[in-house]
């Protein structure tokens, strides 16, 4: 049962990601991106991270996607302003590079998780920790061990906020 749900979410996120990078119309791309994010959020839930899954929906599918849509509407792009794709030979070369990446990165993954380590793991840690991924655990983790990082992130976001406003603001003439 879990495997089936996993497969559904996996196919959903991969397929819509491919749609994002192949379609031309930004609005369509954004819609596909929502689907991809939703699929990934489902995967997060399956990986016993319900809080993160919800955050994924709120931040990505909520805030970021809305931001994208707003900008698309604001720019009101015409066809000749959109850019499109690289030449075919470049795209083929990029695909080639991506395939190589996938292969190279898969080698250690497959080597590790199909060998004896995985068998041992299956025996010793078959069940996830009940507390993993619930809000309380994460909250305690953030506000104890990672308090400094948390504060720094808030500074970063403020800086980004101010920067974004400054950049997007219309310049005063003169």
């Amino acid at each position: 049962m879990t495997d089936t749900i996993f497969m559904v979410f996996a196919v959903m996120s991969i397929a819509s990601a491919i749609a994002v990078v192949t379609w031309r119309n930004p609005v369509h791309c954004v819609l596909a991106l929502i689907a991809s994010f939703a699929g990934v959020a489902g995967l997060f839930y399956l990986l016993s991270a319900p809080f993160i899954a919800v955050m994924q929906i709120i931040i990505y599918a909520g805030a970021i996607i809305v931001l994208f849509l707003f900008v698309i509407m604001l720019l009101n792009l015409k066809k000749n302003e959109m850019g499109g794709d690289a030449p075919v030979q470049d795209r083929l070369f990029t695909v080639f590079l991506c395939v190589i990446t996938v292969i190279i990165l898969s080698i250690p993954v497959v080597a590790t998780f199909t060998g004896t380590f995985y068998d041992q793991y299956k025996k010793t840690f078959p069940k996830p920790d009940a507390n993993l991924g619930i809000t309380e655990t994460i909250g305690q983790e953030i506000f104890s061990a990672h308090a400094l990082a948390f504060e720094l992130i808030s500074i970063l976001i403020i800086a980004a906020l101010i920067g974004a406003i400054y950049l997007a603001k219309k310049r005063q003439r003169g």
Binding site: T94, L97, I104, L105, I107, P108
Partner: peptide, 24 residues
């Protein structure tokens, strides 16, 4: 920019190759 990104990507792949080779 895309070409520079590609060059960065190629560089990253080469580094990955190196690490994987070392792991093996």
């Amino acid at each position: 920019v895309n070409n520079y990104a590609m060059l960065i990507f190629i560089g990253a792949i080469l580094m990955l190759c190196f690490f994987v080779a070392q792991m093996a």
